[in-house]
Amino acid sequence: MSAAESSTGTTPGPSPVRTIAVVRHAKAEWSDSSDHERPLTDRGRLDAPAAGSRLAATGLPFGLALCSTATRTRETWRLAVAELPRRPRTVYEERVYEASPGELIAVLNEVDDDVQDLVLIGHNPGVQGITEILAGSAEPEAAALVGRRGFPTAAVALLTFTGPWKSLEPGSATLTEFWTPHPG
């Protein structure tokens, strides 16, 4: 029996293609409150459901959402998830707030392999950084948009990769789509 065969004598199937939807929180107020407690602006409360509609349009059955604990990310997710046909399990993860791309990759490496597709709701510069660092390749239009626009509020990037979550590392994914609520 080869190393690729299990004790039952069957060969494991191919690794699933996994998708990470990276979402930056919608537009937030600048106020006297702490950065962590900043709420969404009126524009942010309009853009968050649009981001949710974009997620729904993918047709992916997201199994998990990892959301920063900041007020603006929680509000963004609450408004966006209402647009999805099925609410994924949501984990409010303190480590996503102010996380570097490396810290975000470490969080994703801990995801259970039963989860195929997930949403990560966070902050810049971390969300742009993780998108750029993970993308070993990219659809030309998506790469051009990120390069031209950065990662504006309520933007959504879709990254795909094959293999277990613990194998996710710089350059191992493909940027397949980039969407913003205010193109141009």
Rank of each mutant, 00 (worst) to 15 (best):
residue 57 A to I: 07
residue 52 G to V: 11
residue 33 S to M: 12
residue 58 T to Q: 09
residue 43 R to M: 03
residue 43 R to P: 01
residue 46 L to K: 11
residue 35 D to R: 08
residue 44 G to F: 00
residue 29 E to P: 04
residue 48 A to G: 04
residue 36 H to P: 02
residue 28 A to E: 01
residue 63 G to Q: 06
residue 35 D to K: 02
residue 61 P to H: 15
residue 41 T to M: 03
residue 63 G to N: 13
residue 60 L to V: 05
residue 53 S to Y: 08
residue 64 L to A: 07
residue 37 E to P: 00
residue 63 G to D: 09
residue 30 W to L: 13
residue 32 D to P: 12
residue 44 G to W: 01
residue 40 L to N: 01
residue 30 W to Q: 12
residue 55 L to V: 13
residue 31 S to K: 10
residue 63 G to W: 12
residue 33 S to V: 13
residue 53 S to F: 09
residue 47 D to A: 11
residue 63 G to K: 06
residue 33 S to Q: 12
residue 36 H to C: 02
residue 51 A to D: 11
residue 58 T to H: 07
residue 34 S to K: 13
residue 58 T to A: 07
residue 45 R to Y: 01
residue 29 E to I: 15
residue 36 H to S: 02
residue 64 L to E: 01
residue 40 L to W: 00
residue 37 E to S: 08
residue 49 P to L: 09
residue 48 A to M: 05
residue 39 P to T: 07
residue 35 D to C: 01
residue 36 H to E: 05
residue 40 L to Y: 00
residue 47 D to S: 10
residue 64 L to Q: 07
residue 59 G to Y: 11
residue 40 L to F: 00
residue 28 A to H: 03
residue 32 D to Y: 15
residue 40 L to C: 00
residue 64 L to F: 07
residue 41 T to D: 01
residue 39 P to I: 04
residue 39 P to M: 01
residue 53 S to V: 13
residue 44 G to L: 02
residue 39 P to L: 05
residue 47 D to L: 02
residue 55 L to P: 03
residue 41 T to A: 00
residue 32 D to M: 15
residue 59 G to K: 11
residue 63 G to S: 11
residue 47 D to P: 01
residue 49 P to C: 11
residue 30 W to A: 13
residue 31 S to D: 13
residue 58 T to M: 09
residue 50 A to T: 15
residue 34 S to G: 13
residue 53 S to D: 13
residue 29 E to N: 10
residue 38 R to G: 01
residue 28 A to F: 00
residue 46 L to D: 11
residue 59 G to F: 10
residue 33 S to T: 13
residue 32 D to I: 14
residue 55 L to R: 09
residue 41 T to W: 05
residue 33 S to D: 14
residue 59 G to R: 08
residue 53 S to M: 12
residue 43 R to K: 10
residue 28 A to K: 00
residue 47 D to I: 04
residue 52 G to Q: 07
